[in-house]
Amino acid sequence: MEMDGVNENAWWTLPENFDAPLVTFIDEAQEKHIFGHEDLHLRSIELHSHTLIQLERWFTASGQTRVTVVGPLRAKQWLMDMIWSVGSQQAYHQARGQAMLYHVWNQPLTNADLDASFSILAYICGLILDIIFGF
């Protein structure tokens, strides 16, 4: 996912990257785990994923934080996959989410990262369809 910060085609100059923001809700513990105490990791996640992330704490009556992500579609999907995986109750998904989290904390996402996440999501969706419809 090579995006040049001085390029006229930088992700933030393309209006379509601000269409349909992805929104999810997470609890305080998951927020601190992902974004760090006092949002220590928020900026590196944004830089490495080519997105903007808005956190609205205590947005709901249950005390959850609303997370809104804008940016390129595949990057938004990758981040939502990571957030979902980190919060999963299944050990495999948690471990995968943790690996994704460490990755985006420390280095920019590549097209290969985005492709890998998409293919796993497609696989999971296929499994769900098999279970529901018996394909």
Rank of each mutant, 00 (worst) to 15 (best):
L52V: 07
T13P: 00
Y123E: 12
W11Y: 05
A20I: 02
M100T: 02
H93E: 14
V104L: 05
E31T: 08
E28P: 00
D130C: 12
L79W: 05
V70Y: 01
M82L: 15
D39S: 09
W105Y: 12
L40P: 00
W11K: 01
H48N: 15
P21E: 06
H33P: 00
V104W: 02
M100V: 01
L127Y: 03
G36T: 04
T65E: 06
Y92P: 02
Y92E: 14
D19K: 12
E16D: 08
W78R: 07
I131Y: 13
D113N: 15
N7I: 00
T24I: 08
I34A: 09
L121E: 13
E2L: 13
V23I: 14
K76Y: 05
M3P: 00
E8F: 01
P108D: 10
T110W: 09
I120G: 04
E8R: 01
H50T: 04
S49A: 14
E56K: 07
G71F: 08
E31Y: 02
A112G: 02
A116E: 11
E28Q: 12
K76A: 02
F35P: 01
D81S: 14
L22V: 04
G63M: 02
S119K: 13
W11M: 01
A10S: 12
D130E: 14
S85Y: 02
I53Y: 07
A95F: 06
Q77R: 12
K76V: 07
T51I: 08
I128S: 05
L129Q: 11
N111C: 04
A91V: 11
F18I: 03
N9K: 11
G134Y: 04
A29E: 13
C125H: 10
Q98F: 04
E56S: 09
N9P: 00
G63C: 03
G134W: 05
D113H: 15
S88E: 06
F18C: 02
I53F: 04
I34D: 07
L40K: 13
R74D: 14
H37P: 01
A95Q: 14
D19G: 02
